[in-house]
Design a protein around this nucleic acid. Structure first.
Lengths: 206, 206, 206, 206
DNA sequence: AATGAATGAGCATTCATTCAT
DNA sequence: TATGAATGAATGCTCATTCAT
């Protein structure tokens, strides 16, 4: 009996989480297609196969849906990143893995990538919030890794780590943006190596 | 009489251009502050000191205003860029000048920079159009310069010029985005040198 | 067995009536606080400590709940009134008792009074129905009593009984309304004597 | 020229006032028919012969429309009342005129009367606001007149003027309510004399 | 009988655009 | 050319009611 109650509670919680996830998935798809402002809540509901009003049983507003997309994705992204690089000691190998993960991840979910590249950027409000949230943490991991590389003598010391971090991030970000907008379908992940080639060695002939 | 008509015609054309420019300036300011979707045409009209309806004597729609902002700015930007680099022969000096111009220009007009970074990005529609328009031309100039540098042996040959071009652009773009979102006020242009240091030499200690 | 079934049936019926009453009590409280249109069925359910859907096992609609409040209260009110005045022969003593009962009753249940004064009045639909229902019966008792008083010579004959009845009712009603809206807490019942003083003797100095 | 500008300004102001008045008239009619909560803004617009959005050029919200109806009507009502009774010295004649005006006024505009009796009463919020606003002023005029009558010996001194005022008001109010709900069409104003007969002399046979 | 998740009709309000003056 | 009042389509959100469990 106890167990039955408990498992019912868990089952319900799980069902709720599933529904939330389903709505988020639908929203990502719809937002990616038409943009946040041009997407109607009704579009999301239809895509999720539920009634309009049901959306509001799981989210307080359209705005909260977008927020949740960012929060959830960034959270997972950072958690996965930290896990992956924990075992890597060499700073250059670390940056390599980070860059690969960045493109692998976004390259694996085009709709999510579109929402990230387009919608997140499409609102100063979101960017500012985001800037102070998950994004700052992400950039900090890169910065930190570069600083360690400088200490250990692998990286040049005449560069501000934060600036170098932004350069790497900006280059990767541009790869994603171009991939999204490209009419041709090509794998995104391999671009990481190209970026790293330049980032590590520069374009100047020795 | 003839002359009077003619000069009146010219004056009129000039006045029209001025008014268009004034509306665009107003729109840039308003869009930068509140974002495209949150800006009302009435806001733009008020900022420009004209009546709501008057906006439609100069632009067909709100959408067209945003388009005009991009088109005009990009046009000027590219024209100025071509003029400036025409005299520069060395590919590395060229890229240097391009990067500096990029940041000087956007760093000189914060509102315009915001609209470019935020609103242009905030719409796949715009990005796609833009991607095939002025932006492609801009990226092409960079790509071409890199290719020349490879031919002349200044740049490594093991990099695809287009990819290298995107990396440079992405890095610069990120500088602008960070500058916009930063609470601190700092000059944007000097960041060009930092980007170039990495882009040319890489971050690896020799 | 028979007896068991029977008593079970009765118990069930009693339980049903109790639940209905509980919901009505909850509704009276909620309606009094926020008004009919601003009250949600969910509010009533929460106040009654039951699930939203359960409300519909006892009432067909939100509308029916309001109706039931009026019907039940009026029914009790009139029954009590009739019982009380049955023994009173003198028309003036009768009116006295009616007025006192009116204010005692509503003064004893502020929430119910609010619903009666505010919500009943807040809808022509309700008023019309009510007008032809319990209210008409109530007014009729007053009218009848006045007419008897006229016949027996206690009351002036130059007044239409129905009009006099409305005047008395209106005066009492206003006492209730003012009491409800008053920020000060004072006993309502004693106002009956004031009303009767005027109703019987007028305000003119003899 | 000056005059042209001036008259244009005035004309515009007048036109605006007219439109506001027209919308209020339409709203009174619609609210009277269906009640405030059951009336859609679109209903009001249609009744006024304008587009839905136009309503919002003259009123901030549906709520403000109802407020305006009360405020405007009460203002006019009180102003007219004061004007009329200013010349009347005898307290009893004054009350007489007030009662007549009360019923004449509401009897002349059935829809307005319905809105006043039904909608004003249908919301504690409104009643409370109203109670502290125009209504309090109105009741005060009656109270004051009664107090004067007591001083001059025309009225009995053993009654609290405020209570007597409420009794008169309540009686008149009930006449209006009954008139509104009545299926028969009869003139409301004459009821004033019936009310006064009772209010002045009481129903007891001397 | 009881639950509460799901439904979907309904509505106030906004705002890009038009057009009579 | 300029105006700004008027338009009316569009949509996020609420909530009475239903129904599978």
């Amino acid at each position: 009996m106890q167990r039955s109650d408990a498992s019912t509670g868990q089952a319900r919680a799980a069902a709720t989480a599933d529904k939330r996830a389903a709505i988020l998935r639908a929203a990502i798809k719809v937002f990616a297609q038409k943009g946040y402002f041009n997407s109607k809540v009704a579009d999301i509901a239809k895509e999720a196969g539920i009634a309009d009003g049901t959306v509001y049983l799981y989210f307080k507003s359209k705005d909260e849906i977008l927020h949740s997309i960012f929060d959830r994705a960034m959270e997972e992204f950072i958690a996965e990143g930290k896990r992956e690089i924990a075992a890597i000691k060499e700073p250059d190998r670390r940056l390599e893995r980070i860059a690969q993960l960045h493109l692998e991840r976004l390259g694996a979910d085009r709709d999510l990538a579109v929402v990230f590249q387009v919608e997140l950027r499409g609102s100063t409000k979101f960017m500012e919030e985001f800037s102070g949230g998950g994004f700052a943490e992400y950039l900090d991991i890169i910065r930190h890794t570069i600083a360690e590389g400088q200490k250990s003598g692998v990286f040049r010391a005449d560069l501000k780590p934060i600036t170098a971090a932004k350069i790497l991030y900006g280059a990767l970000d541009e790869m994603v943006t171009n991939w999204i907008l490209s009419k041709r379908a090509y794998p995104l992940a391999p671009m990481a190596d190209e970026v790293l080639k330049v980032f590590f060695g520069g374009i100047t002939e020795q």
